[in-house]
Design a protein around this nucleic acid. Structure first.
Lengths: 152, 152
DNA sequence: ACACTTCCCTAGTATTTCGATAGGAAAACT
DNA sequence: AGTTTTCCTATCGAAATACTAGGGAAGTGT
């Protein structure tokens, strides 16, 4: 279960914009160096965010990008979906489109349960939450369990 | 956030073995046709499961594969880890090895929370649960919510 | 008008994943 | 001995991922 570089970069770029304020605009290059993201790659990702309606852009000397909506109205899940497609997929397809036979039949409800659990977190946490380092309590309590940080 | 073909296939193969009983053994070819998995690709995956100590193999005419331990002692998470590496990774690395700067600092605890939530499900559900189509109640109640099946 | 900046678009490359195929050695059964 | 099946290696191609390069379009400042 892996989160792609695209998704990670998209969220981090959106967080830089959220931290800059809903009015201010940042240049792609500034975001790239601030977050250590290859800047031409980031340009493509920002294009997706723009086409997805999450950011607006401005060309020219005083140009750059800024959020299209307030940071507390954009969930992390929104950013990932626009940049990277479905939040959770199995072999590239969404769980409801899968079909399993024989003893694997109950695998589908299992993937659905996993997806529901991921959605519950990423659909609720917004850019404003993360940028301000104030995660909701339920999320924080999950992350604070020392066992959650152990490796295997 | 994607579950790879390797992981999906590995779990389904393990489920076929679990359904066959802890004693019986199945040939790779039989598992491949039962689950519609490319059989040479599956051979490689079964090799990983063997090296990971989850299955044992036997060559020759009456050969095949069987589970190395009872099906109710093998979690879905165990199978995925052996076949596909870490359960959850960001850009290919495990969350604890990541480091974020600036407004993205709280992204790490967020990924940790997501991972903890995924673990809670996949670490608890065993091959026996799924093969018998009897998921634990907490998991079932997540999967039964109609909203969990909607697409976006 | 002109230069400069920054976004925007297309194309190209390297690596990995997924899947198919192939050849052959080792172990077990009939 | 001969068949079966795992096991190991190797390769190949298509697609996706993670970038890189170059140039055109839109905006700003002088």
């Amino acid at each position: 279960m892996r989160i792609s570089a695209r998704a990670d970069y998209a969220v981090r770029a959106a967080l830089e914009l959220a931290a800059a304020g809903d009015e201010a605009s940042l240049k792609a290059e500034a975001i790239a160096t601030a977050q250590g993201i290859p800047h031409k790659f980031l340009e493509g990702i920002l294009g997706d965010l723009r086409r997805g309606g999450l950011v607006v852009s401005q060309r020219g000397g005083k140009g750059g990008f800024r959020l299209a909506r307030p940071a507390d109205s954009i969930a992390i899940a929104d950013v990932i979906r626009v940049a990277d497609g479905p939040l959770v997929s199995v072999r590239g397809v969404r769980p409801p489109e899968l079909s399993y036979g024989g003893p694997a039949e109950s695998l589908l409800p299992l993937w659905i349960a996993v997806r529901a659990n991921v959605r519950k977190i990423l659909g609720e946490v917004t850019l404003a939450h993360v940028a301000a380092a104030k995660l909701p309590d339920e999320v924080l309590s999950l992350a604070e369990d020392p066992e959650a940080w152990t490796n295997p």
